[in-house]
Simulated assay, not measured.
Amino acid sequence: MKTIKHWVDGKYYEGNPIATLDVENPATGEVEGTLLEASGDDLDHAVEIAKKAQKEWAKVPLSKRTAIMFRMRQLVLDHQDEMARLIVAEHGKNYSDAIGEIQRGRETLDFATSINVALKGEYSFDVSTG
């Protein structure tokens, strides 16, 4: 049985969990793994890492941020079958509902990849470094 750890700062993070939670397949009731339940200190650590990452992300030119979001969108498209199967196993949805959920989530990425156009005005701020 696998242990599901947190993903913080680009790597797995165990921290100091206060408990573990069984992860059951809702269709079968079978326990497929255990999830580490984060402590308050673990949450604080993740928030601090996120704050630092946001400051670095803000320094990235808009064109590069948009390219990253396009890549993420493509990865979602390339792996939607795999992601749908995980949603089926984890949440008990049927496959077509899972695909629909991914497509609705992808709408956010579609918006993010067009944000450079939406923000375009008379003056373009931070479109390049320096």
Rank of each mutant, 00 (worst) to 15 (best):
M1P: 07
M1S: 11
K2E: 15
K2S: 12
T3H: 07
H6W: 13
H6V: 04
W7A: 14
W7N: 14
D9T: 09
D9Q: 11
K11Y: 02
K11C: 05
Y13C: 05
E14C: 07
G15Y: 07
P17R: 04
I18T: 09
A19S: 10
T20C: 06
L21S: 13
V23W: 08
A27K: 07
T28Y: 03
G29Y: 08
G29M: 11
E30C: 04
E30A: 14
E30V: 12
G33I: 08
T34Q: 14
L36W: 05
L36C: 09
E37A: 12
A38F: 09
S39E: 01
G40L: 06
G40T: 04
D41R: 00
D41T: 01
D41I: 00
D42Y: 06
D42M: 07
D44N: 14
A46H: 07
E48N: 13
I49P: 02
A50R: 13
A50W: 14
A50M: 15
K51C: 15
K51A: 15
K51W: 09
K52S: 14
K55Y: 08
A58T: 01
A58Y: 03
K59V: 10
K59M: 15
K59H: 11
L62C: 02
K64R: 10
R65E: 10
T66N: 06
A67N: 13
A67M: 13
I68R: 02
I68W: 04
M69F: 10
M69R: 02
M69Y: 05
F70Y: 06
F70W: 08
R71M: 10
Q74N: 04
Q74M: 03
Q74G: 03
V76S: 02
V76K: 01
V76C: 05
L77T: 08
D78P: 06
D78G: 11
H79E: 03
H79I: 00
Q80H: 00
Q80I: 00
Q80V: 00
E82D: 00
M83E: 03
M83G: 05
R85L: 00
I87Q: 04
I87F: 09
V88P: 01
E90A: 14
G92W: 13
G92M: 13
K93E: 06
K93D: 09
N94M: 05
Y95M: 11
S96N: 11
D97H: 07
A98H: 02
I99P: 00
E101N: 01
I102R: 03
I102T: 06
I102A: 04
Q103P: 00
R104M: 12
G105C: 06
G105E: 02
R106V: 00
R106L: 13
T108C: 02
T108K: 01
D110K: 02
D110H: 03
D110R: 02
D110P: 02
F111S: 01
A112H: 03
T113K: 09
I115A: 13
N116E: 15
N116T: 11
N116A: 14
V117K: 14
A118M: 13
L119S: 11
L119F: 11
K120L: 08
G121I: 09
E122S: 14
E122H: 10
Y123P: 00
F125M: 03
